[in-house]
Design a protein around this nucleic acid. Sequence first.
DNA 1: GCCGTTTTCGGCCCGACTGTTTTCAGTCG
Length: 569
Amino acid sequence: MSPPPTPKAAPPGGGRVPTNAEAAAVFREIADLLDVLGEKFKPEAYRRAARSIESLTEDLAKVAARNELRAIPGVGDAIEEKIRELLSTGHVSYHDRLAHEVPPGLLEILRLPGLGPKTARRFWVELGVEGPAELGAAIDGGRLDGMKGFGAKKIAQIRAALAPAPAGESSARRPIDAVYPVALELLRALRARAPVDRAELAGSFRRGRETVGDLDLLVTSERPEAVFDVFSALPEIGEVRLRGGTKETVLLKGGLQVDLRVVEPEAFGAALQYFTGSKDHNVRLRSLARDLGLKVNEYGVFRGDDRVAGRTEEEVYAALGLSWIPPELREDRGEIDLARAKKVPRLVESSDLVGDLHVHLAPDATAADVDRIVADARVRHYAYVGFVVTSIGTDGMLVRASDEARARLLEANGRGLRVLEAVEVAPGLLPLSMFSEKPEYWIVRPGGAPPPEGSTWGVENARLLAHLGGDAAASDERLRAWLGAARSHGLAVEVGPGPERLDSRAAQVARSLGVPLALPTGLGAEANDPTLPVALAFARRAGATAAEVGNSTEVPPKGPKPSRPRRAG
DNA sequence: GCCGTTTTCGGCCCGACTGTTTTCAGTCG
């Protein structure tokens, strides 16, 4: 039972071991190539494996070293083999062979909106077209005219797809926090102005994914036409892409695609479930239904022609013998088995939070700024707010809150709310002797290398590892080193939107190491601020319960057991 | 190519929309 050989030889050409994202990209491209070659089911198999690899919480090489590649959903004998080849040599010969067969420009054609593998292949085989430029020339030369299935409209459509996107528009996936305000605004506008009964956001936005490719809106209404009329006229809408009896697709002015669907109330739960996804989750659900002699679609759960569920999501899951599954967990990563066993954890919610450990005060912050944040904390019945009164700026210099703001902190303390002073340090970056303060607790941010096991940070009473991002979290190795340091020092680590907080996958690593999470709460921010909802979504995607979130406990957490109770002052 | 609380072989989600069709193919989500 000798372990399989770990990749010891560096990939040729002085390369390095491919990252998970790079490996996923290779398998995606294999899928595209197979698509163009007309393969039927293999492309989806490779894509499935690519999605799984992408969502792993550790490096493929480590999984391979433990001989557990086959445990990755969608990875069987053939793909395991190819992963091993990729890890040890830096390439997959099967991929090389396919790429040799198919002109690279065909993949670009494949990725144009409205064009798929069938069409790309026809251009290649029937016209000898091998790339977007040649396709444009073929259209200009009238070579598509008279081709079966290509009328004037279709040709105009392809011509439009070939034109470069207008500046400022992009179809790329965007960070969820960047999309959050407009998503909520669209939802609010629909509820206020269109004849809808229910309206919800679905899709990867509802699942709280780090990035979203488009927005899915779902409403119930007696008058779809009227809903579409209102929606199309909203100021955010740039262009209506298509409009049918139940569905409208638009592009926002920034280029983001939004799909709006109208369903009947009896099907709302089924539609919400269906359009929330993920794809893998839905596929699993439908095959489970088939095994039970049922059929699931966006209109409900059916036994024969009888709809046995559909009005609510709970109903839909119950009809399949499952408890309701929070959207953030719907990625086919074991949640369906948990739901069958009725063991879906109760994930952390905003009502679990009782404080914020990490509110920065700018040098020009006023007493009014403090008041606004404190008032918000009182409205939310928080037990504490920790203000950072001294930290390190991007220029490496100390940043101190104004005297006015600090004076107001003292006045604001009390009446059920503890107002705390924290100082943020970066051990290894600035000597601690530069800090004269005696704060109630310290916040640590990565400066140099993570301290070795058993060392101290040089400060007593540190509670939070913040701003963990960039270089410090660039690799699985370094992320784990910092999280290991956080654990041995009893620190919570911040999760949420932005490059200086952990995303859901890194949060999952933190959880697996027993490091409590800390969520930014967006105290004092304006309406539609994404900070708290996105942070919550990331923590929930990582499977975190309230007990695993530092600022859901009564006092600022200290030590490896954040739930140990202490009296709030 | 993957997968199995019916299966180690024979399946592989399924409906809306568009454009080109006179009943459907392709794309998308």
